[in-house]
Write a protein that binds this DNA or RNA. Structure first.
Lengths: 336, 336
DNA sequence: CTGTTAGCGCGTTCAA
DNA sequence: TTGAACGCGCTAACAG
């Protein structure tokens, strides 16, 4: 058993400061108040600095039962939206624990979906879930916060996707669009169903004769490009004047595919989507999209999770719903 | 001290199977061969399944000295290139440890830079570094692998950025460009310096009278847009016919800024860069860029790190250098 | 082939 | 105000 060379341990600090390990523990954990004299405390602090002592996370976890780690489960962190959620979650964790404390652990950085084994192994105190999957059994009461999954029970923070979808429907209806293609995804996420349903309902309400057709492709650039290249002519033949994608990534791909196919946007076809990732603003043409606060989603989720872990609120309160709003840019125009 | 309700422990499994904890430990860790009879082994396996037992990661880490976690230090995983590196690293870790084992821990998901505290706290067995920063003291011999940092010592995997840069120089020189603007970054990364120097050297070698001007901006879309909007006219006035950015992100921003300013690309100005993130292919016009294998960089780095941790090779061998190649698309054309 | 037992480093109760 | 001692769950010598 090769073991890394010894770092300073609490015993060493204790010896160096001429106190017991208990005292060291107290000052390290901020429980010195009324238990350790200021002078002693300082001696311990000096010893810690001198020895470069850092509490061993594993030992502490074993002793306290808290890992100081939380996981963010997502299916693909290569997706800009997910990356923003993660960045927000990291910020939220730092914020909620005072910087020093829990840290963020990303699983499933790939399309293959998260490896949830660590969750079962009690590597984490809680989980932020941003994909519809199942947790490993064996940890039934692990604190969990669902992100952007309105259908999930329990603690959750989501976004007012419906409001945004309706705003988009109004925008398009006002532009005269009556036949729009909705580009969904093969993934059964409740948020996507919600986007589609709210959009459709509002469009039909505003324009009774309107028709919403359906198509779908994976959430990635290449899939969008391919789909548009293959289906653009059919869409046009079907009388479609606008396509609404579930995500910006798909829409940006579609934009590229349409450009390659020589279909003018928004001249011949309007394109809109959801998310407002940074690339949406620099697409050609700049993409009209329902801006979803990804970063804030992650941040709020992390703060909520930290609260649940700390025991602030064990009962799932009102789900947190973040605002979404339509950002009109140049990819949408009057129906032709 | 509130403690989560008890999950099954090794003792429970042992009791359930009518064996000792040692036996349980052996079968759990795959060391049953020649020590535990197949029948006993099966009994233990059944007990594990029945009880839903999962080894506690903290306890195991404390006992073995290995955390089964590695960290990837990066400054912003919101950057598509970084995200790919991370995805590759996750795959590499899984590959090197047989899937069940080390997991990836991302730090510094933000622009603020990584929070290296966990490294000091011995939360990880090794570190993958993708930014020029310092590790916390106190862990002098922690296994480290540098990614895309040719100037770093020790174990490292990088990319043949120089070859790519020279190829780009040849491409541009062949197109008649003699005055090109190099768009660098404020960050002192050795890889960026290398990109610039190799490009410049080759261009001057091919076209003795050529001039490479300098400008710089942060590695993000908005910075590129802003810079182009502000400086495009000056660049043109200076006789610049091509701009080479250190990263695709900057270039894509520049493309958008140029479009807004009404400067035709590649008609009036050619634009090229490094990385080949997925968005480069769908930019308008599609971006000519030096493709850098981000995913493979992460994967190889992880595999190498796993090897170092396992003790396969403690001496930094030949640095791994991955190939880079120029991908010519439509953003570059003849100098005007 | 299987069981016993001593740590791993830290947190915390209890006694001093 | 401080120190001694036990337990967290697991691994791995060492006995048997």
């Amino acid at each position: 058993m090769t073991r890394p060379p010894r770092r300073a341990r609490a015993v060493d600090v204790a010896a160096h400061a001429g106190v017991s390990v208990a005292t060291v523990s107290f000052v390290v954990n901020g429980k010195a108040e009324g238990r350790v004299s200021p002078a002693t405390r300082q001696r311990v602090l000096d010893a810690i600095a001198a020895l470069g002592y850092v509490t061993d996370a594993s030992a502490r976890a074993l002793a306290t039962g808290r890992r100081r780690q939380v996981a963010l489960l997502a299916h693909d962190m290569t997706n800009p939206f997910t990356a923003q959620v993660a960045a927000g979650a990291a910020a939220g964790i730092a914020e909620a624990t005072g910087g020093t404390g829990h840290l963020l652990l990303l699983l499933g950085s790939d399309e293959s979906g998260p490896d949830v084994e660590p969750v079962g192994a009690a590597t984490v105190d809680g989980v932020l879930i941003n994909y519809p999957g199942t947790l490993p059994a064996g940890r039934p009461d692990l604190p969990v916060v669902h992100l952007d999954d309105p259908a999930a029970g329990g603690h959750q923070v989501s976004m007012d996707v419906e409001v945004g979808a309706r705003e988009l429907a109004r925008h398009l209806a006002g532009l005269g669009h009556r036949r729009v293609l909705h580009l969904g995804t093969p993934r059964p996420w409740s948020t996507f169903a919600q986007r589609r349903d709210a959009f459709t309902a509002e469009l039909l309400a505003l324009a009774p004769g309107a028709v919403v057709l359906d198509d779908r492709c994976d959430i990635d650039l290449a899939a969008g490009v391919q789909l548009a290249a293959d289906h653009a002519q059919r869409w046009l033949a079907d009388g479609v004047t606008a396509v609404v994608a579930a995500t910006d990534l798909q829409a940006i791909g579609v934009l590229a595919g349409l450009a390659a196919a020589g279909v003018p946007v928004p001249g011949r076809l309007s394109v809109a989507a959801f998310d407002d990732i940074p690339f949406a603003a620099v697409a050609t043409p700049p993409l009209t999209t329902v801006a979803l606060p990804a970063r804030e989603l992650g941040r709020r989720g992390a703060v909520l999770l930290a609260g649940v872990i700390a025991g602030d609120r064990s009962e799932p309160g009102e789900p947190v719903v973040l605002p979404a709003r339509l950002v009109v840019r140049d990819s949408t125009g009057p129906a032709c």
